[in-house]
Simulated assay, not measured.
Amino acid sequence: MNVKIITDSASDLPDELITKYDIDIMPLVVIMGNDEFYDREDIHAKELYKALREGEMAKTSQIPPARMKETFVKYAEQGQPFIYIALSSGISGTYQSASIIKNEVQEEFPNVQMEVIDSKAASLGYGLMAISAAELASNGKTADEIKQHLSTTYLTHMEHIFTVDDLEFLQRGGRVSRASAFVGGMLKIKPVLHVEDGKLVPIEKIRGKNKVVKRMVDIMKERGVNLQSQLIGITHGDDLESAEKLKSAIQEAFGSERFVIHEVGATIGSHSGPGTLALFFLNK
C-alpha cells in the first residue's frame, strides 16, 4: 500500500495538482467578524481578497483538532501509512497539535506508520514538498525513504522570497510597526522578505514593484541551484499579471521551464493581503 500524503490548505496547491497526486488537504480556519470558514471549502482566495479590499479584517486559526483526528483515524483504520506535511511551526501551532494527535492515534493503531513533518515553510514552500513526496509515494517509496528525501532537500534548501503590496496587512499581524507601515505605503516601498528556520525575516526594502521583481530574480541567481530544471513555485495575492512577469523574467534569466503558479490562499492571504508576490525554489 503506497504512502498517503496529507498537507493543509495553507500549502496553496492548485486543485489540478491535488487531484493528480491524490493529496489530502485539511483546512485551516479563516475568521471574519463572528463567522468562521474552512479554507478552500467555505471560503476561497478571491472571496477573501474582495472582503479585504472592502475593509474587512481576517484572522486565522488551526485545523480543528477533531477534523485532524478524524483524518488520521480514517487512514489508520485502513492500515494506510501516511505522512502529514504541516505549515511551519514558526508561523502556526498546527504542527504541534498534529504531533499530539498523531501520538494519540498511534496508541490505538501501533502497527500503522504515521509521520508528521514540520515543513518550516509556508504556501508553495511546502506545497512543492508535498508534490515531491507524492511523486515518491506513487513510485512505491516507503515513509522513511520519503521523509529522508524531504530532510535532505526541501527541509534544508527551500527558499521563500516574497513581497507584499500593502505593509498594513503585515502590520496587523505584528510583522512591522504601524509607523513603518504608514511610511512604506506613502512612499510605495515594498519589503522583500524570506523565511528563515520557519520564521518571517525581512531582507530589504525597495521602491516600486518592477524593481522588486528584478531583485527577486537577482536573489534567485545568488542562491538558487539547477534553476533550469527544478520545479519553481510562484504565488500571488490576486495579481496574476505580476506572477506572469516574474515567471517571464525567470525564464529569460535561467531558461527555467517547470513552474507551479497559483493564488495565495485564504489562510496565508489573511496575513499578507492582496498584491502579495512570492517565489519558491531550492537553494545551494
Rank of each mutant, 00 (worst) to 15 (best):
residue 276 T to M: 07
residue 23 I to G: 06
residue 259 F to I: 04
residue 24 D to S: 14
residue 73 V to T: 12
residue 170 L to S: 07
residue 71 T to I: 14
residue 79 G to L: 00
residue 19 T to Q: 14
residue 9 S to R: 11
residue 70 E to A: 14
residue 283 N to F: 01
residue 249 A to T: 01
residue 155 L to M: 13
residue 269 G to M: 08
residue 9 S to L: 06
residue 212 V to N: 07
residue 139 N to C: 10
residue 193 L to P: 01
residue 279 L to I: 04
residue 110 P to W: 12
residue 224 G to Y: 07
residue 74 K to A: 10
residue 78 Q to F: 00
residue 198 G to H: 05
residue 256 S to W: 07
residue 74 K to I: 02
residue 210 N to P: 00
residue 281 F to H: 09
residue 28 L to W: 00
residue 246 L to G: 08
residue 41 E to K: 13
residue 20 K to F: 08
residue 234 I to R: 02
residue 11 S to I: 02
residue 147 K to Q: 14
residue 21 Y to A: 10
residue 188 K to C: 04
residue 161 I to M: 03
residue 209 K to M: 13
residue 173 G to C: 06
residue 70 E to Q: 14
residue 106 Q to Y: 12
residue 11 S to G: 04
residue 83 I to T: 05
residue 190 K to P: 05
residue 98 A to H: 10
residue 229 S to K: 14
residue 80 Q to D: 05
residue 24 D to R: 12
residue 29 V to C: 11
residue 148 Q to A: 15
residue 84 Y to E: 12
residue 10 A to T: 13
residue 284 K to Q: 12
residue 129 M to A: 08
residue 192 V to L: 15
residue 18 I to G: 11
residue 233 G to M: 04
residue 167 L to H: 06
residue 245 K to Y: 08
residue 151 S to C: 07
residue 43 I to C: 04
residue 248 S to F: 03
residue 112 V to H: 08
residue 241 E to P: 00
residue 63 I to E: 00
residue 27 P to M: 02
residue 144 D to H: 12
residue 199 K to P: 03
residue 13 L to V: 12
residue 67 R to Y: 10
residue 199 K to M: 15
residue 221 K to G: 15
residue 141 K to R: 15
residue 270 S to H: 07
residue 170 L to W: 11
residue 154 Y to W: 10
residue 231 L to G: 09
residue 24 D to P: 08
residue 13 L to Y: 07
residue 46 K to M: 10
residue 100 I to F: 06
residue 111 N to P: 02
residue 164 V to E: 04
residue 95 Y to L: 04
residue 179 A to Y: 12
residue 103 N to F: 01
residue 208 G to K: 05
residue 236 H to R: 08
residue 7 T to C: 03
residue 225 V to L: 12
residue 153 T to E: 08
residue 14 P to T: 10
residue 57 M to K: 14
residue 17 L to W: 10
residue 38 Y to C: 06
residue 280 F to G: 09
residue 226 N to K: 10
residue 29 V to E: 02
residue 166 D to G: 05
residue 24 D to V: 15
residue 152 T to N: 14
residue 208 G to C: 07
residue 239 D to Y: 02
residue 42 D to V: 08
residue 149 H to S: 09
residue 5 I to E: 04
residue 164 V to S: 05
residue 243 A to N: 06
residue 138 S to Y: 07
residue 222 E to N: 12
residue 51 A to R: 15
residue 72 F to K: 01
residue 42 D to E: 02
residue 180 S to T: 11
residue 160 H to C: 08
residue 278 A to F: 08
residue 175 R to M: 00
residue 190 K to T: 01
residue 170 L to A: 10
residue 256 S to A: 15
residue 177 S to L: 05
residue 227 L to E: 03
residue 65 P to S: 13
residue 8 D to S: 00
residue 111 N to S: 15
residue 92 S to D: 01
residue 4 K to W: 09
residue 185 G to C: 05
